[in-house]
Design a protein around this nucleic acid. Structure first.
Lengths: 227, 227
DNA sequence: CCAAAAGTGTTTGCTCTACACCCATGG
DNA sequence: CCATGGGTGTAGAGCAAACACTTTTGG
């Protein structure tokens, strides 16, 4: 292994854009920076990639450090490498996006190290450090887009859920009302979720619970669901 | 600027998957490695990212070094960071994909440094060095996919072209015959190309020449063209 | 029995697909 | 006049969009 001769090397980090849906809003996980640069500003959780650490493992680790959540849908987003993006020097950042179930055991603003991590609503964001506003904007675009043709929506829900809950996730993210009957027909025809025998009572008639088929996660058809 | 203390840093490279269409086949630009590891094997063109060089600039430079082509459609593909992907040590590679017009002034297998760069048909590839076979497979998938919903096809053609030429590009890449009338209707309705007043004679009736609208390149609608 | 949320079909318009013949030029 | 590739329209099928009432439970 040869390090640090021949050429100077950039630092490599991962940044994670973690989404969840709470209180009928799309929420993003942000941390408050304590050190300069941008001390006091909000930023995406992230950090350096270990020299023997796979990129996705680094993203997963950063996410776990801030939330305590070990398992989540995680996908590489884009790599940001503008030489000026970090005033301290050349830092190349591989951005990931993560979807957390609404019931994930998140300890944001809980433990010692994670005290600074918080969910903030995506439609009402403060200014962000570095180029994180760009990264976040792109992540939201990609999330909307993915929702339209694949069917990652249920990654934001518990293991079982009602169709109304699923529809609400779609409405929150796409920012528009959807027709109940058309939504159900399409989501069922897509064949990625299946009914369970259970129901959940609430303010009215109990709703059937659904779960996603395990095999469907793999073969996420590249078919458009919501034009 | 602080380099090389605190943590060891990975090396960062770019690799470029450059496509063109020649002889009714999709061709990929590859170079023959002269040094170990994988000496003698084919590989994607690529190299280290300069410490003050933007990522896309590095990709563009590598492409120009191998082909002499300065301007081409270039898009970030994915970042490969498996710790074992390079036997020499930790190397993170940001992969790009490039589309070159059929008439680009490519000097592959021409000049001194570029003597080793060659176009090889994508459907008949030799084993590749590192994880380049994975990268290439993904690039082809992405190319097909992009062709279906956006309309990058004309990036593989000269500034003006006939509809038959454009259709042939689509057929070569998608690997299936398309209906002439349906193809024309859709590609014209998409509004990204426009007729010129000129025609080109050939073996039969002269064909109208088209060009892509300059403004259309920006607003590549995310609308599916070929389901 | 009333409030609250779940569940369920049909009609209409549009888009995609399949398909076959005439046209303009060069040799 | 013949060979070569360029250019054009329509009918049928499948999909998406709009739309309102009945059902089940808890209080």
């Amino acid at each position: 292994m040869t390090y640090c001769y021949e050429y100077p090397r950039p630092a490599v980090t991962v940044d994670v854009v973690a989404f969840t849906v709470q209180q009928k809003r799309l929420q993003v996980l942000l941390v408050k920076r304590r050190k300069p640069p941008f001390a006091g500003a909000w930023a995406l959780p992230g950090g350096f990639v270990g020299i023997d650490e796979p990129l996705e493992a680094a993203a997963s680790r950063e996410l776990a450090e801030e939330t305590g959540v070990k398992e989540a849908y995680l996908e590489q987003l884009y790599t940001y490498g503008d030489p000026q993006r970090d005033p301290r020097g050349r830092v190349i950042s591989v951005a990931y996006f993560a979807l957390l179930p609404a019931d994930a055991p998140v300890r944001a603003s809980g433990g010692d190290d994670a005290a600074r991590a918080q969910w903030l609503p995506a439609d009402h964001l403060p200014p962000l450090a570095f180029d994180h506003a760009d990264i976040l904007a792109y992540a939201i675009r990609r999330l909307r887009y993915k929702l339209e043709y694949s069917a990652v929506g249920f990654q934001l829900l518990p293991a079982t859920f009602t169709l109304s809950e699923l529809q609400q996730v779609y409405e929150v993210i796409l920012g528009e009302k959807l027709d109940k009957r058309n939504f159900r027909r399409r989501i069922l025809r897509a064949g990625i979720i299946e009914p369970t025998p259970h129901h959940r009572g609430g303010g009215g008639r109990p709703a059937r619970l659904y779960r996603y088929k395990a095999d469907a996660v793999a073969e996420v058809k590249a078919r458009r669901l919501f034009p």
